[in-house]
Design a protein around this nucleic acid. Structure first.
Length: 484
RNA sequence: GGCCCCGUCGUCUAGGCUGGUCGAGGACACCGGUCUUUCAAGCCGGGAACACGGGUUCAAAUCCCGUCGGGGCCA
């Protein structure tokens, strides 16, 4: 039975890179009918915060990555790590180290100055019993260090990269239990992955250097090691690891700016992986991704997080989205811009639905909803300067708009078709192109030069508002011309 | 600095294991055209890449070696 996990530290918001790792684990589990677990690595008391745990959970749920077991908290398992660490001590596979941070720092500096790599010199590994007893009786603080083999080579097979090997002399005797009794990352990770019966460790490439150490821990503890797969890192524009200085890195930030979860899911799945022999398709449903996902097809090289492409994909999913759901998703943004009241009425909802239906093709982010459809909810307060220059500066505009207002006011049946007929007829009578009337009308009604088809838009805005706006614009133009 | 990983259009990638079908395919972005009341969307078209050098081979994006470049980890 395949069992995988995501093990974030709650020391910050859920990073999109972590989300991508979670996604690949989830796909792998679903693909193989296995289980996906959530483990919170909160042994760092100082930096771990409950609100980050909440955010991790919220983010994973938003993306639709439901876990089968957990969340487990490392902070609740400290005794387990201690027991295992002391077991290694008894078996002679770990030892007490009394070196103080200051001593270590000094020796490190010295090694560096001698041109040597700064590694722990293992002096406490060779302490004899009486020396050790003396240190203990002096009440000196100690850590537990793992006794690494000093020669030979460690090899492992990575599902993404193939064989990876390191000479053991490169690895020093790392700490497994700190002086305060808390475990280090590598140790807690191995103990947990074993106990949680993890079969495949799928994580970021930044963990490759940890893997050989962990493999030795598995051996020393008598555990069966899992398979490893190291995913390429998500990169910023400059090809360094994606971080805050590249812009938004938190999954929830993307949610808040109006990315749809299915767009993020699809996008993230295609960073570092794509279905083999794909004929250029980019849009995949969850089920298709599960079906086609193959961990061994993951590309080993880093992938730049390309916001442009995410936005394109999001726009695609917005266009595909069911209108009812899309409207619901836009409501908070409309409310935030005071376009609809906090307890919206049925009428407001209906208007929002129609407005969103007309502007959705132009929307890349849900957060654009207010700026795209504010004129459905309130009269424009100004006109786009470019539009004014182009379409509202002719001498006859004021009169044309006034005339159109009058004719529209007379309409008994006010809908897109009627407005179109009325407008085109007026243009024809005056011997001008329809465009010469359409553009000023758009400006008058929406304040903008761009937007949905004018006639459908006017139908939604409504007769009274259209007439009022046309007249208001007509007099605005007149006043402006007289002022010159 | 040491170790490890990586290197196909600007970006995400297909192809690489199993060399010839690759005169390198798709997508985003960009440019042009089309549709059209505008902007989008759609459709059609365009420019744009196998990091470099050396092998192996009849034949290399694909296999081998080296160089360069980038990144990660440790400090």
């Amino acid at each position: 039975m395949v069992r995988v996990r995501i093990a974030p530290a709650p020391t910050g918001a859920l990073h999109v890179g972590t989300a991508r790792t979670a996604l690949f684990n989830w796909l792998f589990a679903r693909k193989h009918g296995g289980e996906f677990l959530l483990r919170i690595e909160d042994t760092d008391k100082e930096r771990s915060k409950p609100e980050f745990v909440e955010q991790i959970i919220e983010g994973l749920k938003w993306l639709g990555l439901e876990w089968d077991e957990g969340p487990f908290f490392q902070s609740e398992r400290l005794q387990v790590y201690r027991d295992e660490a002391y077991r290694l001590l008894e078996e002679g596979k770990a030892y007490l180290c009394f070196c103080t941070p200051e001593e270590l720092e000094e020796r490190r500096r010295q090694m560096l100055s001698e041109g040597l790599p700064p590694r722990y010199d293992r002096r406490c590994r060779y302490l004899n019993d009486s020396e050790r007893k003396r240190m203990l009786s002096e009440g000196r603080k100690y850590v537990l260090r793992f006794a690494m083999p000093t020669d030979g080579e460690t090899k492992f097979y990575d599902l993404v990269r193939g064989e990876i090997s390191v000479r053991n002399e490169e690895l020093d005797d790392f700490v497994i239990l700190k002086s305060d009794g808390t475990p280090t990352y590598n140790f807690a990770c191995v103990v947990d992955d074993h106990e949680m019966r993890i079969t495949h460790v799928i994580r970021g490439e930044d963990h490759i250097p940890n893997t050989p150490r962990q493999i030795w821990l598995y051996a020393a503890l008598g555990y069966e090691p899992p398979q490893f797969a190291h995913l390429p890192l998500l990169l910023g524009q400059d090809r360094s690891k994606l971080s805050k200085r590249h812009g938004a890195t938190s999954l929830l930030e993307y949610r808040d700016m109006g990315i749809l979860p299915e767009a993020m899911f699809n996008f993230l799945a295609l960073l570092g992986w794509s279905p083999s022999g794909s004929g250029g398709e980019e849009i995949f449903s969850r089920d298709e991704l599960i079906e086609r996902f193959e961990i061994t097809q993951v590309k080993p090289s880093g992938a730049i997080f390309n916001l442009e492409k995410l936005l394109w994909m999001n726009a695609y999913y917005i266009r595909q989205c069911n209108l009812e759901r899309l409207t619901g998703l836009c409501i908070p943004y409309l409310r935030g811009s005071n376009l609809i009241s906090s307890e919206e009425s049925e009428a407001e909802l209906q208007l929002a639905r129609k407005a969103i239906g007309l502007v959705r093709d132009r929307m890349k982010l849900l957060s654009e909803a207010p700026s795209l459809c504010d004129y459905f909810f309130k009269d424009p307060i100004e006109y786009e300067p470019d539009g004014v220059r182009k379409w509202l500066s002719q001498d006859d505009v004021s009169e044309l708009l006034e005339e159109l207002a009058q004719r529209i006011e007379m309409l008994e049946q006010f809908d897109a078709a009627a407005v179109e007929t009325t407008l085109r007829k007026l243009a024809q009578e005056r011997g001008i192109s329809a465009a010469r009337l359409i553009h000023p009308t758009r400006l008058a009604v929406t304040g903008r030069t761009v937007g949905p088809g004018l006639f459908e838009l006017m139908e939604v805005v409504g007769k009274d508002a259209c007439v009022r706006r046309l007249r208001k614009c007509a007099s605005w133009v007149k006043a402006k011309q007289q002022a010159i």
